[in-house]
Design a protein around this nucleic acid. Sequence first.
DNA 1: TGCCTGATGTTCT
DNA 2: GAACATCAGGCAC
Length: 189
Amino acid sequence: MTNLQRVLGKSSAIEAAQRLLGCELLRIIDGRVARVRIVETEAYDQTDAASHSYRGRTLRTDVMFGPAGYLYVYFTYGMHYCANVVVGETGYGAGVLIRAVEPLEGEVMMEEYRHKSGSELTNGPAKLCQALMIDKTMNGHDLTLEPLQLIIRPEIDDSRIAVTPRIGISQAIDEPWRFYIKDNQYVSR
DNA sequence: TGCCTGATGTTCT
DNA sequence: GAACATCAGGCAC
């Protein structure tokens, strides 16, 4: 078991969503490095009507029921990809949607893929996928390995985390399962 | 500044 | 056949 699985495997989706704030993603494309910090997340699990895992394990959601520390990528609205980190015990369908990240390194490379700059670069779940070249070929990727690694950082202080209902969905919209780092320009409204 | 809508494909009913 | 964990562009105010 990897360290990543130890940290995420025993957490509920809600705990993991908070724990992942402040952690980093390291993306390597053609030998070039992009590094970003996670600043906004949403929790989803199989008891939750808004979750893809709610209706049970299917071909599409298979990865979410696998071990923690893997990447679940889905395609939505005909043109966008979104990235989730699988959490919880193997066999339990839970994940954390990465809604926004803050560029730390390789910003120029991300601008090339996005054709945008500034906070528009990565302030939404589909935007950050475009900036980091994450598509469905990365579905089921082990996040301890190149070319995309999740790096656990020290937990950030509770007082810097804001909790709100989720956005952009139509089911279970009142659940306060969205988390973000306060006063960060990359957090979506 | 803020609402409205089109683009567009995969999955499930 | 409809829904969908979205985004960006256009137009009205």
